[in-house]
């Protein structure tokens, strides 16, 4: 049984269909990249997978005992966060909150887990630094650490490299790939950086207001849509 299955799903805003005909599944341990141009329905699909938005038609199943509060999510940054007085540690620890339920305070194991994830991403030394004073790449790592605190199974990443310089972009890609390989956490990433996607992802889902491709990266690079989208110039 797959972790997430989309069956003939479509999503709409106020009756206007944004993306339709979604038929795919995410297996445990996959690294799936959702590609497509701006406005092709990628972020809408992520909202659907997170259950923040109900499908207009069709359905999305969760399998393998995956619960709604076991999904790690790396959202796009909002204006509020850019000027927020919080330490990297406070942000990371807040990822554990969904496991607390009604219990108001964090336990020792929550704090241990936050430390573990900050260390894993190489930012434990930055724990007391203010979030708004970190560089873009460091901020993304903090949010990734928070997402890891929330999950042991699946991470949904919404444009994780948007606004990062090339060095920070490669760093973050390597970090995500390492998490996938070493811990077996499933990765579902939305990105319009297709070259980065084919380099690291195992599977590609290409959207153009409908599903135009779903399969392995190797097949994608041979398909006509893949060749066109990649520009036919880079095959590294």
């Amino acid at each position: 049984m797959a972790l997430l299955t989309c069956k003939d799903a479509s999503f709409a805003y106020e009756g206007h269909t944004v993306v339709s005909g979604l038929n795919f599944s995410v297996e445990s341990g996959d690294y799936l990249c959702i590609a497509g141009e701006n406005g092709s329905g990628k972020s809408t699909l992520i909202k659907g997978l997170l259950r923040l938005k109900a499908p207009q038609k069709g359905s999305i199943f969760m399998g393998d005992g995956l619960k709604a509060n076991e999904i790690g999510y790396l959202p796009q940054q909002t204006a509020v966060q850019k000027d927020f007085p919080a330490s990297a540690y406070e942000v990371t620890l807040s990822g554990r909150l969904s496991r607390r339920g009604v219990r108001p305070f964090y336990s020792k194991s929550d704090k241990m887990n936050a430390k573990e994830n900050l260390t894993r991403l190489g930012i434990w030394e930055l724990r007391n630094r203010c979030y708004r004073e970190l560089s873009g790449g460091q901020q993304q790592r903090v949010l990734l650490a928070r997402a890891l605190c929330a999950t042991q199974k699946i991470l949904l990443l919404d444009e994780p490299v948007a606004g990062l310089d090339p060095v920070a972009t490669q760093d973050l890609y390597r970090q995500i790939s390492k998490i996938n390989r070493e811990t077996g956490i499933t990765i579902v990433m939305v990105s319009h950086d297709i070259h980065g996607a084919v380099k690291y992802a195992g599977k590609i889902l290409h959207l153009k207001n409908e599903q135009v491709f779903f399969g392995t990266t190797a097949d994608y690079m041979k398909s006509s849509i893949g060749v066109r989208f990649l520009g036919g110039e880079r095959h590294d």
């Binding site: 999510y73 807040s94 990822g95 909150l97 928070r146």
Partner: peptide, 23 residues
């Protein structure tokens, strides 16, 4: 406020993340 402190932080910092993780 004391009992809700951690939730207030999460909801203030990132409402979408909080909602996505089931809060």
């Amino acid at each position: 406020f004391a009992l809700l402190y951690n939730k207030v932080f999460a909801v203030t910092f990132d409402e979408n993340f909080a909602k996505a993780t089931g809060i």
